[in-house]
Design a protein around this nucleic acid. Sequence first.
DNA 1: ATTTCTGATACCAATTTAGTATCAGTTAAT
DNA 2: ATTAACTGATACTAAATTGGTATCAGAAAT
Lengths: 142, 142
Amino acid sequence: MKVLNKETDYAVRALISLGMKPDGWVPAKAISDEQAIPYQFLRRILQELIRSGLVESKEGAGGGVRLGKNPADIGVAEVIEIFQGKVQVSECMFRKQLCSNRANCVLRHEIMRIEQMVNEEFSKVTIGKLIDDLKAVEALTK
Amino acid sequence: MKVLNKETDYAVRALISLGMKPDGWVPAKAISDEQAIPYQFLRRILQELIRSGLVESKEGAGGGVRLGKNPADIGVAEVIEIFQGKVQVSECMFRKQLCSNRANCVLRHEIMRIEQMVNEEFSKVTIGKLIDDLKAVEALTK
DNA sequence: ATTTCTGATACCAATTTAGTATCAGTTAAT
DNA sequence: ATTAACTGATACTAAATTGGTATCAGAAAT
Ligand code: FES
Ligand code: FES
């Protein structure tokens, strides 16, 4: 059971990469090289990040992309949602036969609790936090 | 992002169904009808549940399946693992470029914390608990 | 004008998912 | 002894998803 797919994975890495050099426009090519992400694939991913406002872009020579929000304000949950949609345990785990009234379904409740917990936890993991941790690790291994 | 696939979904429902009539052998056909699960698909799912000991079977006429463990001892986590493998956030979220030493990776740690949390929560949701909740709901709506 | 970029979109192969079909063997009942 | 009701095992398939590629148009800097 894989929680994050490649798109989300790459997106997070790209965001971290951008967050670590916060001045000026960074061309997609640079990120692609640095993070070993297939260029065209990354391009498509960046475009989605741009559409959702996490990233800003500037066309033409000397252009590129940069973060559109403070790294501390970008939670991984948000990125997951862009590329994999809202966390959903199952369309409706206990359907017709087992459970006639969705509204008061105790079971569904139980499961949605977990769903929400996961979302909260993934929201707490922000790009900013990841960058900080990363810097800490780098300092240690130097 | 769909957490449970059809196999897991059907498996859980089949287990609930079995847990609610705990006496004697139940033919797959009966579960298939009751839960509106495609017969052959269910058969294959049941075979995996049998292999992993959650369900026992008896061949021949008058045969069928029944739970192999106490409903209270079957956690949904266990079922998920059978059909979707262990929860794994990402092969290695921050690879070569970003993080050279997996062993002391602070970031990875962060993510694995969530992984474990999810697993624990899904372990606490047992077939027994689901059955109890289901009965409670049924009592209310009657 | 030319080079360096993004925007948009169409395409593709490989894998996974959800479901079907078949045949062999076992047990119970007649 | 036959037959009917079952599981065991496994092969097959269509459709969707995933991960990745390719192309072309247009914008800005030089
Ligand atoms: S499960 Fe669909 S509602 Fe109870
Ligand atoms: S991420 Fe692979 S180890 Fe830090």
